[in-house]
């Protein structure tokens, strides 16, 4: 009996040593997972997920603190892609964090703008140009449609502009294609 315990303990100790040694030898720095998750997120930086941006959300998912269904701009497709990456079952998009809106940008009504620069500070991607007390404008091609500038505007002069469908971005409707 004693013998068995001793033999087994030595055996386990040996295995532990091997593992401990290889853990040192094959140590990996950083978490490559965050990068991968972040590359799936739409980078709108809207904060609807309750994190300060896409990267913090990615970090939270990687740590297992956040669920994968908190990103409305990414839509259900985004949730599915995350589920596939993480090899977990997909979830329906959590409506609490908002709905998936069509692609849009914002525009500032330059007549009403008082040049308070609050929106400039709110913009996560530096897509708003302007300075104190002068007219402020949105660079449409840089705008991600996060809408973070809208609530901070004191004179409500920022509007949503739906992006016009363009020939270059046209995707045929599958129902139109199939002929069953």
């Amino acid at each position: 009996m004693i013998e068995a315990i001793i033999v087994f303990s030595i055996f386990a100790l040996l295995l532990g040593l091997v593992l401990g040694f290889s853990a040192k030898k094959f140590k990996v720095k950083g978490n490559p997972l965050v990068e991968q998750i972040n590359s799936i997120l739409p980078q709108t930086q809207c904060g609807q997920c309750t994190y300060a941006g896409c990267k913090p959300y990615a970090e939270a998912i990687a740590k297992g603190e956040a669920k994968i269904n908190q990103c409305p701009p990414g839509g259900q497709e985004g949730v599915d892609a995350l589920a596939e990456l993480l090899n977990v079952d997909t979830l329906p998009l959590n409506e609490e964090h908002g709905e998936t809106k069509p692609k849009h940008v914002v525009e500032i009504d330059e007549e009403l703008c008082i040049g308070c620069t609050l929106c400039i500070q709110a913009c996560p991607v530096d897509a708003i140009l302007g300075a104190s007390k002068v007219m402020t404008t949105v660079i449409a091609s840089e705008c991600t449609g996060c809408d973070l500038c809208i609530p901070v505007c004191p004179v409500d002069c920022i509007y949503l502009i739906d992006l016009k469908p363009s020939m270059d971005e046209y995707v045929p409707n599958m129902e139109k294609v199939t002929n069953v």
Partner: peptide
């Protein structure tokens, strides 16, 4: 249809990369 989808995905990836860069710069 498939080609348009591929194009759309590429476009979205590009856009995301750009916003990400700008976000990180900010």
């Amino acid at each position: 249809y498939g080609k348009a989808l591929v194009k759309k995905e590429l476009r979205e990836q590009e856009l995301a990369a750009k916003s990400r860069e700008r976000y990180e710069f900010k």
